[in-house]
Design a protein around this nucleic acid. Structure first.
Length: 294
DNA sequence: AACACCCCCTGTCGGC
DNA sequence: TGCCGACAGGGGGTGT
């Protein structure tokens, strides 16, 4: 599920459920996801209040109130490939699943004082969580090397020009690197490249001029990235397989895909007449139109 | 340094 | 029906 638009959708869905609430009961149903959960995570979270929900790239940031003994901390969550949160209201005093009958792959449960239950489910367990001092969030190894967000005012093309200059790696691979534009994944890279009319096979360095500045193509790519991310957030993200938003609703951006998962179908570019093709780059599927993406 | 490859894990789907 | 391989929204680690 989770590239930037999906994580942003999760953040917005969890906001009313968690912000301003005290965590009354916290349960970790296993010791690790991809990495070990933070030491004593349940104990350290219980009794704290959620002050705000943030997002950095594909990371969800659950900001917590200060505890008497120390400063504020943030629970940093990455959803990996298959992580999701669901919200259930009014569970105060409700039956609490024993481990044996809990829905499969429910790994972390947060219950607030007003009877809201937020459950993290992740079949593949590629997700992970970390509990870090809020004041030093920027120094966290997961966050410190991330590139700029594709939402907001930071210009992207100059940053990409510095990064892509001289690179022979395919554009597709270069854009998946989170040091470039943070938050893009396989779907939105394919979609942005299609909108920009750029081939995923083109060398990343070909978008940089001899003067080291962004070319017109790179400027076009920036606009395509911004547009596809904004459109996807507005649509509530993409729902592949059974992924749901926190309230159970489906995102609907998958209906707006122009290239991703459309192998063999007609290219939607007006007047193109090409066919969407699937290739494999660094072990992952790339979908593009060889006719209009050059 | 840059890049290709493998791995983590579970579930689903298509082909035989 | 069942078995088997391919594949899935990510990214960290290793080897060349």
């Amino acid at each position: 599920m989770p590239e930037l638009p999906e994580v942003e959708t999760v953040r917005r869905g969890l906001e009313p459920a968690l912000v301003g609430k005290r965590l009354e009961r916290v349960e970790t149903r296993r010791k690790d996801l991809r990495f070990p959960l933070p030491q004593d995570m349940a104990v350290r979270l219980t009794g704290r209040s959620v002050t705000a929900l943030g997002r950095r790239a594909k990371y969800l940031l659950i900001h917590l109130s200060e505890e008497p003994a120390g400063g504020a901390e943030t629970l940093l969550c990455h959803l990996g490939m298959s992580g999701s949160f669901r919200v259930e209201e009014g569970v105060t005093g409700a039956f609490h699943h024993p481990r044996s009958v809990a829905p499969r792959h429910d790994h972390v449960v947060l219950e607030t004082a007003d009877g809201t239950r937020v459950t993290y489910n992740d079949p593949r367990r590629f997700g992970f969580m970390d509990l870090v001092p809020t004041a030093r969030l920027d120094e966290n190894p997961h966050l410190c090397a991330l590139g700029p967000e594709p939402v907001g005012n930071t210009p992207l093309a100059p940053h990409l020009a510095r990064l892509f200059g001289g690179k022979r790696a395919p554009l597709k691979a270069a854009l998946l690197d989170q040091k470039g534009i943070a938050g893009l994944g396989n779907i939105y890279v394919c979609e942005a490249l299609h909108r920009a009319g750029l081939s995923p096979r083109r060398g990343a360095g070909t978008l940089v001029g001899a003067n080291g500045r962004a070319t017109a193509r790179l400027e076009r790519l920036e606009e395509a990235i911004r547009a596809v991310i904004a459109d996807a957030i507005a649509a509530g993200g993409s729902s592949l397989r059974d992924h749901r938003q926190t309230d159970g609703a489906l995102g609907y951006f998958q209906h707006a895909f122009r290239a991703y998962d459309r192998e063999g179908q007609a290219c939607p570019t007006p007047g193109c007449g090409g066919t969407i093709t699937r290739i494999v780059q660094s072990g992952r599927s790339t979908f593009y139109c060889p006719a209009c993406q050059r």
